[in-house]
């Protein structure tokens, strides 16, 4: 009886430990392509998907493994950006091998598509941005399964050589083209109007002129040492002076990094994301 009670307490203790928040042990779903040995992994760290959805996604992702490793990662980290997170995990899991990652980060509320190696030739940064732009609305509605599913479908299309819908690209280009065309047309009107504005030399009659002059005497009188104020009145010196002040104000650091730039490591890579 005492031994039975000990066994029951051990089981209860084990189960209670399992119930403690933060100490949950989540098993990652995993598969590998039969021909290439590339792996397909779903790492649902943020617990956005259930088991059925993960299994469905694995099936959808498997054809992509013909080209490289495939990873679906959900995360709630706020201490890093998506590109760094995806690149770091790729380094840890796959080294320099071909890989594609779809990241859903609900901490900073961003989805990101990251491709490495040969896959980055088919999935460019522009394509990655387009895919993220096409599926972000599902993530906004918390339909993460559909979001990931549609993303991998489009990734698969690109890897097969098919094209994907890029409404963001065409809308942006159309609007910018229209604005530029309006300005260029107006510029043409201004140029034609100004074609008939004379320069100073055209204003007047080509008058007859007679010029005869020579230097009869030139005498050195004095040497004058220039002050700081006098130097600043000279254009180039003033420009250099202002530039020195500007550089000292901003310092040497700071910089902007845009989404879609090539990531870390020695492999070539591409990526693009979208907030949701």
């Amino acid at each position: 009886m005492r031994k039975l009670l000990q066994y029951l307490c051990t089981i209860l203790l084990f189960c209670s430990i399992m119930l403690i928040p933060g100490s949950r042990c989540h098993a990652y779903n995993y598969a590998s392509h039969p021909d290439t040995d590339y792996t397909v992994t779903v790492m649902d760290n943020a617990l956005l998907l259930d088991q059925t959805e993960e299994k469905d996604l694995l099936q959808n992702m498997l054809p992509i493994a013909e080209h490289g490793h495939v990873l679906l990662l959900t995360s709630d980290r706020t201490d890093t950006d998506c590109e760094t997170e995806a690149a770091t995990l790729c380094d840890q899991l796959f080294g320099d091998e071909n890989a594609v990652v779809f990241l859903i980060n609900i901490g900073i509320r961003e989805i990101y598509v990251y491709a490495r190696g040969d896959m980055s030739d088919s999935i460019t940064s522009g394509d990655a941005r387009s895919i993220a732009d096409n599926v972000y609305r599902y993530a906004s509605k918390e339909d993460y399964f559909t979001c990931a599913d549609r993303a991998f479908t489009q990734i698969n299309s690109l890897l097969k050589g098919d094209s994907i819908a890029q409404p963001m690209k065409y809308i942006c280009n159309a609007l910018l083209a229209m604005i530029l065309a309006l300005l260029l047309g107006f510029g043409w009107v201004c140029i034609n109007a100004y074609r008939y504005r004379p320069g100073q030399h055209l204003l007047l009659n080509r008058s007859s002129k007679h010029v005869k002059a020579s230097v009869t005497n030139a005498e050195y009188t004095d040497t004058h040492f220039l002050t700081e104020a006098e130097l600043c009145s000279e254009g180039p010196y003033l420009a250099l002076y202002l530039l020195r002040v500007l550089l000292s104000f901003f310092g040497g650091g700071g910089g902007f990094s845009g989404s879609g730039s090539t990531g870390g490591g020695s492999s070539r890579s591409s990526g693009g994301g979208h907030k949701f």
Binding site: N205, S207, K209, N217, E219
Partner: peptide
């Protein structure tokens, strides 16, 4: 930086006709 100053004298004979 310094500036050397000079006094310069010229002999000039210039005419402009019919500036319109």
């Amino acid at each position: 930086p310094v500036k050397n100053l000079y006094d310069v004298k010229l002999d000039v004979d210039v005419s402009y006709e019919d500036i319109a």
